[in-house]
Design a protein around this nucleic acid. Structure first.
Lengths: 228, 228
DNA sequence: CGCTCCGTTGAAACGGTTCAACCCACGTGG
DNA sequence: CCACGTGGGTTGAACCGTTTCAACGGAGCG
């Protein structure tokens, strides 16, 4: 099963006219990757735009020392590789299949042609980029202005809100990956989870976490309190 | 003196047709701010797009504890406030006059109207946003993966390249601000500058810095060496 | 069973921040 | 003209959060 028959379900392509959708469908190429496989690498020349169709894709940077900072984990419907597309030049980060996945690929030339034809596609693209900038700004704030407990608290609250599953959060990534997502390392994450547990803020059960005290977490995320 | 007569000199507006430029000129409003004055604050509702006309504007975030992370310092020709414009909602950061300055303001509605009319304006906007995303990705990498000496080295090299002034770099901001730009504090910056001085990497003279060993700095920036 | 992978825990080391003192250049006002 | 305050910059010492290194435990699996 894939989603190609429903291009209009992808947020980037919603509200497009059917003619436009057909054009896109024509230039689109499906590509499959197995878990861990590299899709592109930071510095490669940007040759087009990708959209996750099935599975998940990890966008990340790696330091010479080998530490990894995950920028995004994208699921179906999310575009990536678009920076190189519009700013020209190369990919600013690397992409890898986080799970086995299928992606839609639109060549640079073809896609730009489509954008030129239909301004509403440009508008959607602007919205996508803006949201991404907003997310980056938040990440920068976290990395620079908050310590790890604050970032973790913010992330847990974000997850609970996104899933809408109330106070029970299920981590869909390993704790090691969560650490990279938060800009830290597994050991530190483990300690902080234990500490939050001890303080009665959360209850950790494997990869499911119960938020016992959302207000307390909120205070942590806002930097109003510290985790002693 | 201002630049309004030459809207087409602004990168965002280059290659637009004259009719389009006239439309923009019509909806534009000039605003003046004195050094330190707040232009907008994180969380405010985004009411339009700004372009620096004269002087400099600082875009930043502040932690509850009062620490500041500067995201950008924009000079003439740079747009800001555009995220809220396209992603809807509120400003993700605050803006303040870094020097006395004059900015051009385009109301949300009017500007979107112009974008709708002329796809090439949308293209320019996409390029601007993409470059900004690229810059943010680099900043995230720096904050998360590099230590302060590496960030400083990278910044110095960046400045020397930008100014094209060879190995002599003149800081156009105070060292305190540079610290905030690098995500650290004045004391730390001072110590590291002193250390680099001692190691013969640079020579500091007030706000002018001589890069004595660009290759050494490069190694630092890439994280291949550490500053002992 | 023994292997690996992931997560956890402890102790030591490190980088950066905090707090405080101090210097210097500069401008203001007595 | 000098006294004084102010803001930017520097330096030292203590402190703190995070990382590093190393060891260990459990789950899953050939």
């Amino acid at each position: 099963m894939d989603r190609c028959g429903r291009l209009e379900d992808i947020p980037l392509f919603e509200d497009l006219e059917s003619e436009q959708l057909q054009d896109l469908a024509q230039i689109l190429k499906k590509q499959n990757f197995t878990r861990g496989q590299r899709i592109f690498t930071e510095g490669d020349e940007g040759n087009g735009l990708y959209v996750v169709d099935l599975g998940q894709v990890k966008i990340f940077k790696i330091s010479p020392a080998g530490k990894e900072q995950i920028l995004h984990i994208f699921g179906p419907g999310n575009p990536f590789g678009e920076i190189a597309m519009f700013a020209g030049e190369s990919f600013p980060a690397s992409a890898e299949a986080f799970t086995d996945c299928q992606v839609l690929f639109f060549s640079r030339h073809g896609f730009l042609e489509c954008v030129r034809k239909d301004p509403s596609l440009a508008f959607n693209m602007l919205a996508v980029l803006s949201r991404r900038l907003r997310k980056f700004a938040a990440l920068i704030e976290d990395l620079s202005l908050k310590e790890v407990p604050g970032r973790l608290a913010a992330h847990l609250l974000y997850l609970s809100e996104k899933d809408g599953a109330g106070d029970k959060v299920k981590l869909e990534v390993s704790k090691g990956h969560l650490a990279a997502l938060l800009g830290t390392i597994p050991e530190t994450l483990s300690r902080i989870l234990a500490k939050m547990n001890r303080q009665g803020l959360i209850e950790v059960n494997g990869s499911t976490i119960l938020l016992l005290d959302p207000d307390g977490l909120e205070d942590l995320a806002e930097g109003e309190v510290k985790l002693t």
